[in-house]
Design a protein around this nucleic acid. Structure first.
Lengths: 130, 130
DNA sequence: TTAGATGCAAAGGGTTTGCAACGTC
DNA sequence: GACGTTGCAAACCCTTTGCATCTAA
């Protein structure tokens, strides 16, 4: 069995993800932590993101062909992606009731989890573009 | 304005996607069509998949870090991915009612579209693994 | 002390792109 | 004939990996 070590880098990555709502990409994390860890490498960032995902401390979000985004909130909540500015927002609460609808609606498969992703424009972009 | 041409390769790719339920990857399409188009290249497959997606003739599906899958069915239907065998299935009908729930449930964003992805095990895998 | 983690750089997978030749309109 | 498209190969982006060194436990 593998024991994971509580390294400074791993702690910093997890802290960073738990203290932001911006769903950063690996590169964002790398750039942000580089000042505190001048020798930090992409390999370390990616390795830790992978490990943290595997042990359920964070979750990885993928959209289109672009880089993964990471979320320190591991509850199964939907995300809203603004197609104009690219920002990703959490959508909570309103959707708790969806769980029941989704889990009870399907007959031919055994559903273990689901992911709901919403697309459109955020209020800021909607107002400044219209 | 760009006028798209109805080339043999493009037609073959679209036909292929319209006549399968297997949600193939670019490589699957490439391999399948290679016998009819010996000089077919990946560039052509990818370029056409991109164009066909942009004009709404097909849709692209992405999961995890693996290659995109493509679907000739452009209705907004959920997909079920079996975590044991990797197959991707369409989930129709049962979910039509979800549209209303989702589009009426969110207040802070202008939703244009959504994607629902389900994960679990298909009946075949469930039976053979239990 | 010792396995797991780091930093670096090179390699990897999937996808895109530059360019000359080609095919469709 | 004009311009979108193809085939080829090289480039690209994001991510993973091999290896020697380091470090948490």
């Amino acid at each position: 069995m593998i024991t994971h070590r509580n390294t400074q880098q791993r702690r910093a990555i997890l802290d960073y993800l738990r203290n932001t709502v911006s769903h950063p990409r690996a590169e964002d994390i790398y750039v942000s932590l580089k000042s505190n860890f001048p020798s930090l490498s992409f390999g370390t960032v990616y390795r830790n993101l992978r490990i943290l995902s595997e042990i359920g401390e964070i979750q990885e979000l993928r959209y289109g062909n672009s880089a993964s985004r990471f979320d320190g909130n591991t509850t199964n909540h939907p995300h809203f992606t603004c197609e104009l500015c690219g920002s990703v927002f959490d959508v909570e609460e309103e959707f708790i009731k969806l769980d029941k609808v989704i889990f009870s609606g399907v007959k031919n498969f055994v559903i273990k989890s689901y992911r709901l992703e919403l697309f459109g424009s955020c209020l800021h972009c909607k107002n400044s573009h219209s």
